[in-house]
Simulated scan of single mutants.
Amino acid sequence: MTDWTGRRVEVEVGAVAHGGHCVARAEGRVVFVRHALPGERVIVEITDDKGGSFCRGDAVEVLTASPARVEPPCPLARPGGCGGCDWQHATGVEQRNLKAAVVAEQLKRLAGLDWDVEVEELAGGLLHWRTRNRLAVDRQGRPGFRAHRSHKVIPVEHCYIAAPGTVDQVVGKKWKPRAEVDVSVDANGRTHISEITEVRRETVSRRVAGSAVAVERAARRDWRLDAHGFWQVHPDAADMLAEVVAEWSGVKPSACAWDLYAGVGLFAAVLAEQVGQEGSVIAIESSRRAAEDGADNLSDLPQVRVFAGMVEQVLVDGDLPDPHVVVLDPPRKGAGREVVDAIAARSPERVIYVACDPASLARDVASFAGHGYRLTRLRAFDTFPMTHHVECVALLER
């Protein structure tokens, strides 16, 4: 079996691929290369080789640089360093171009669609945007982030993409070895920190700073939620996504709308304003804590009914009215065929799909196409600068 681990090869870097790397070829094998850009000629050190047709490596020397290459602001954004950022060595414009290429490639390969994708920049630039972080702790009690595709903890003294009031409040302190530390800063500028450990196979969370409840603001409302629960990590993302949902829903007063994977109810609130008190909004969320927070946040909107449970189960077991529009914001793995089939069976006029993974989005778009729904609009946002992640919103119409 071929094993190139530790070997260095010279390659011409090809197209970007999903996952924060580019594709190259060496001696007939595919090499997935990090820390490189399309068109460059680099020396790659192979870091992971399980045999077969491909292996993985890091660009350790750049022989011919791309015009879009820049010096990474963080000294740990390098081979063998922190695995949190993928594209610090590229300009902001190039980062968004790379992400657009990935979204377009996934739609073409998995959904058979040719789509011209543009990734839109959000306010605030490339640094100091991430309001929620989870750090690992090494055996010496030092906080840091894991290396790429590794459990190794890289201790940090600073994180260039973290918002003030997050990582800067954790570093320089000793933590329980092998613990994890959740830190967030909310819309009121309050920092919340919890140390998470495993005791006798049970997860134990110890609050260190702040409270159990964070306050966020979006869609002209205040939101109270678990300080370490799900909320968009970019401060402008929630408002932007809510605006797109409001623009695309097409829902009329007195109609019914569904908000699936509803979290604490952001999109349900937008839809509730549109359907009015004579209409109805069904919000389904698998996390009981988030569903309870959502019910509390939306208590002034009697047209909203919140269900706590797995989306696929509630869609089958719940006595739900047929929707005019369905908004869904599934986890990274996507909604899946069972949920897509259940939605299509109710024949909504429109489906608005919010996606944090282009491959999952493309697979589910293909499944919807099998039920007669076509992609009519797509917007993509750079809600995760310096990383390979991108947020998309797709409109599907029957």
Score class of each variant (00 low, 15 high):
residue 38 P to W: 01
residue 11 V to P: 00
residue 32 F to S: 09
residue 18 H to Q: 13
residue 10 E to S: 13
residue 11 V to M: 05
residue 28 G to N: 10
residue 29 R to L: 14
residue 39 G to F: 10
residue 28 G to L: 04
residue 27 E to G: 12
residue 21 H to G: 03
residue 29 R to E: 02
residue 31 V to F: 04
residue 14 G to T: 10
residue 23 V to T: 12
residue 12 E to M: 14
residue 31 V to C: 01
residue 33 V to Y: 02
residue 23 V to A: 12
residue 27 E to Y: 10
residue 24 A to N: 08
residue 10 E to Y: 03
residue 17 A to M: 08
residue 17 A to D: 04
residue 37 L to W: 02
residue 25 R to Q: 13
residue 28 G to T: 13
residue 13 V to S: 04
residue 14 G to P: 08
residue 29 R to H: 13
residue 28 G to Q: 08
residue 12 E to L: 11
residue 22 C to Y: 07
residue 30 V to K: 05
residue 32 F to R: 11
residue 31 V to I: 14
residue 33 V to A: 01
residue 36 A to G: 08
residue 32 F to Q: 10
residue 23 V to H: 07
residue 31 V to Q: 09
residue 26 A to N: 05
residue 18 H to M: 06
residue 33 V to D: 02
residue 26 A to W: 15
residue 12 E to W: 14
residue 38 P to L: 07
residue 32 F to I: 11
residue 16 V to D: 00
residue 30 V to T: 15
residue 18 H to K: 10
residue 13 V to I: 14
residue 15 A to P: 14
residue 22 C to H: 11
residue 11 V to L: 08
residue 10 E to G: 14
residue 35 H to W: 11
residue 21 H to L: 07
residue 35 H to T: 00
residue 15 A to L: 13
residue 29 R to W: 08
residue 31 V to T: 01
residue 35 H to P: 00
residue 14 G to C: 13
residue 20 G to C: 03
residue 21 H to S: 12
residue 10 E to T: 15
residue 13 V to H: 01
residue 15 A to F: 06
residue 27 E to V: 07
residue 37 L to R: 08
residue 27 E to H: 12
residue 25 R to K: 15
residue 24 A to M: 04
residue 36 A to E: 06
residue 13 V to T: 05
residue 13 V to A: 02
residue 37 L to P: 08
residue 38 P to R: 10
residue 10 E to K: 14
residue 24 A to R: 02
residue 39 G to E: 07
residue 22 C to Q: 12
residue 16 V to Y: 01
residue 22 C to R: 11
residue 31 V to G: 07
residue 21 H to A: 10
residue 26 A to P: 00
residue 14 G to N: 11
residue 20 G to D: 03
residue 16 V to P: 04
residue 26 A to S: 11
residue 17 A to P: 01
residue 37 L to K: 08
residue 33 V to E: 04
residue 11 V to W: 04
residue 31 V to E: 03
residue 13 V to W: 02
residue 25 R to A: 13
residue 39 G to K: 12
residue 24 A to H: 09
residue 36 A to N: 00
residue 17 A to G: 09
residue 34 R to Q: 06
residue 17 A to W: 00
residue 38 P to A: 11
residue 17 A to E: 09
residue 19 G to Q: 04
residue 17 A to K: 09
residue 30 V to A: 13
residue 26 A to K: 02
residue 17 A to H: 10
residue 24 A to T: 07
residue 37 L to E: 05
residue 10 E to Q: 15
residue 14 G to H: 09
residue 27 E to A: 15
residue 25 R to L: 03
residue 35 H to E: 00
residue 26 A to H: 14
residue 16 V to F: 02
residue 34 R to K: 03
residue 30 V to W: 04
residue 21 H to E: 09
residue 15 A to V: 14
residue 12 E to Q: 15
residue 20 G to I: 08
residue 35 H to M: 00
residue 32 F to A: 03
residue 18 H to V: 09
residue 36 A to W: 06
residue 39 G to Y: 06
residue 16 V to K: 01
residue 36 A to T: 00
residue 17 A to C: 10
residue 17 A to Y: 00
residue 28 G to F: 07
residue 12 E to I: 09
residue 15 A to E: 15
residue 29 R to V: 13
residue 21 H to R: 08
residue 32 F to D: 04
residue 16 V to T: 11
